[in-house]
Amino acid sequence: MRQDTSQHARNRIKQRIQGEGYAGIATTVLSIVVVGLLLTVTFAAEWVRAPEINLTTSQSLISPNGDQDRDFTTLTYSISDDATVSIQVLDSSGHVVRTLLQGEAQPTGQGFVSWDGSDDSGRRVQDGLYQLQVNAQGAVRSASRSALVEVDTTPPTLQLVNLPNGMRVRSPVLEIQGVTEPGASVWLTGAPSPVTVDTEGRFLLQYRLQDGLNSFELRASDEAGNTASIQRQVELVTTAPDVLVTAPPDQAWFNNPIVTVRGEAPPDTTLTVNNQPVSVAADGTFSYDLLLDEG
């Protein structure tokens, strides 16, 4: 009887051990399956993820006019995953005007392209806003980002007020007044710094003249680097002009109350006789009928 009881106990222990072993095996198999599923899901998520794109431009305002100032912009971009990259330039209506890169397979990392403001036919585009659009096609999904670039090739306006070319003045201090495009910079020949321009584009400065003929230039430059200029010549006259009266002779006597005054003067002279203006001909001669008082 004791022997049967001992045998029964051993059988129960054996069954218990076997049960625990089967449970351990099942747990291990389940763990392997879970890990495999997690790896599969992670791989799938990585595979279908859209590439991330970051981009910057060296210039957001260009003036492609060949003056070597802001003639082009460089687009630098980076992608987070291997992708097929295309880069196009779109106008304000969304039309493609230039293809800079078409379907090029690129690894993760950085790239760059330059745009000189021309379309696919090589002609310069019209002034306005354009999008530099980068499209990166991953294994399943794609991503797109754009940067705005403005094209401006129009020179700023520049006008002077009451300062004709060839003007003759007596004062050595010349006042120069004018107007330009708001935001533009105005420079005067030989000046170390630009002229102050107000928010409406108006400016006022003084320029010291030397005796004789003075030449100077005013140049306006806008934010895109476009320029406009005006040249002027102004003569400073500090000595009286030579005037020669040829008739009538000095100390002459007349029976007629009307006498004709004739003479010569520089053609650009402002001449008056008894406070009345007299025109000087191109050859430097003048003539004026004067009514005399008796005596």
Rank of each mutant, 00 (worst) to 15 (best):
A265F: 02
A282K: 12
D250W: 07
E294L: 14
R208C: 08
L291F: 11
P194R: 10
Q210W: 04
Q210H: 14
L209K: 06
N275C: 13
E235K: 06
E200P: 05
V195Y: 01
G201M: 00
V243D: 05
G295K: 08
P277M: 11
I258C: 09
S215V: 08
G225E: 00
R232L: 08
V273Q: 02
E264F: 15
V234W: 01
A220N: 01
E264Q: 14
L213K: 14
R219F: 05
T199V: 14
F203R: 00
Q233C: 09
L205E: 02
T246F: 01
A220P: 00
F216H: 07
V278C: 06
S279H: 13
V234R: 01
N226G: 03
L290R: 04
Q233K: 11
T227C: 08
L205S: 00
A252W: 10
D293N: 15
R208E: 15
R262I: 02
N274L: 12
R208F: 11
T239Q: 15
L236H: 00
A191P: 07
L292R: 07
G225R: 01
A240I: 11
A220E: 02
V237A: 10
T199F: 13
A191V: 11
G201P: 01
P266S: 10
T189K: 05
L292T: 07
W187S: 13
S193G: 10
G263L: 09
L218P: 02
V273G: 02
A281N: 11
L188T: 03
F254M: 10
F254K: 08
D242T: 15
L291W: 11
A224H: 03
P248D: 07
A247H: 04
A265M: 03
V195C: 07
G201F: 04
N275D: 14
G225V: 01
L218Y: 04
S229A: 13
P248I: 01
Q276L: 10
R219W: 01
P241T: 07
F254P: 02
P194V: 08
A282C: 11
V245I: 15
L290D: 01
G295W: 03
N256Y: 04
S287V: 06
V259M: 08
T285W: 04
I258L: 15
A252D: 10
Y207N: 09
E223W: 08
A224P: 00
R232K: 10
N275A: 15
E217D: 12
D268S: 10
S221G: 12
I258G: 12
E235R: 10
G263W: 05
N274Y: 06
L271S: 04
V278E: 03
V280A: 02
E264P: 06
Y207R: 06
T227P: 01
A281T: 09
D211P: 09
S215F: 11
E217S: 13
L204E: 13
S287C: 03
V243E: 03
W187Q: 12
V197P: 01
L244A: 09
Q210V: 08
T239N: 13
F216W: 06
V261Q: 05
T196I: 13
V237D: 06
Q276I: 12
P248S: 07
V261Y: 04
T199L: 13
L290M: 05
D250V: 08
W253S: 15
G201T: 04
D198S: 10
L205Y: 04
P257N: 15
T272Y: 12
